[in-house]
Amino acid sequence: MKKTVLFGALTIAGLAAGAAAAGTLDDVKARGKLNCGVTTGLVGFAAPDANGEWHGFDVAVCRAVAAAVLGDQNAIEFVPTTGKTRFTALASGEVDMLARNTTWTFSRDVDLKFEFVGVNYYDGQGFMVPKSLGVSSAKELDGATVCIQTGTTTELNLADFFRSNNISYEPVPIETNAEAQQQYLAGACDVYTTDASGLAATRATFENPGDHVILPEIISKEPLGPLVRHGDPEWGDLVRWTLNALISAEELGITSANIDELKKGTNNPEINRILGTEGKLGEMLGLDADWAYRAIKANGNYGEIFAKNIGENTPVGLARGLNAQWKEGGLLYSPPFR
């Protein structure tokens, strides 16, 4: 009983201290560096190159925020986090934001007290099978052996899918994606299931990618997005609207190539508001007028970032699909800059 009281008191003290230290924007400015949590490595989303520079789709979000706040997309400390350490790193203040392909779920948003500021990639769980298996739909996989990463939501989704379709499967538990590739190629399982983006990246590394097909069924919703802590809405707004600026920039045709041209002023008031030539949007965020200009200029708009890191011309080779702009049949829909 006494112990419980003690721990309770400690927790409250911790929370109070956390609340007192609110003002992430000021902290970041004072530090001169953004601490951004990324994965320890995921193809196309975040990986260090031979010089130790981080690149990737998630990394670009961090860089855009750093460019908006600090004016330098390299003023970042990348903190590699694993699936197990990511949430404590954010909750404890070790990182200012997490851009680490994390699925937006109810419990993470509400119970873990985080704020998902948006979605930068709509993913979903899919299946990959060898062509020789002659399967064209996941519903034909009755009795198949399935390589599945343990302890992830994919494991639960898989169980749900097979149960609701009244077919059976035999799981082959594996720990990492690299292990899964080896097992799948060695024929230890008929099917490999994980997020569709991961499947595409994995298939691209095979010696004969054409021998394997990704089945059309997507059995789960995995909206991946950057997140921040509860308790500092201003900082959340800033990260949210930086992401929205990247998305809107694509919609409005602002690219890293023509941004300097457009910065001189256009007939489109929304472009002008984003780029700070009209209105006071930057001021409302506690930044200067050029914040979005810098964010977009850093690595280009959403479409450019997508094409450069995971698009169809990269080894990962993902189509836009759900991640196209709403005008092109996708789900990307940024609220207006007004």
């Binding site: 990986a47 590739q181 080894p315």
Partner: peptide
């Protein structure tokens, strides 16, 4: 693991 996450060396 991080090196494998480079699309050049994945796999």
């Amino acid at each position: 693991n991080a090196i494998r996450a480079d699309s050049a060396w994945n796999g």
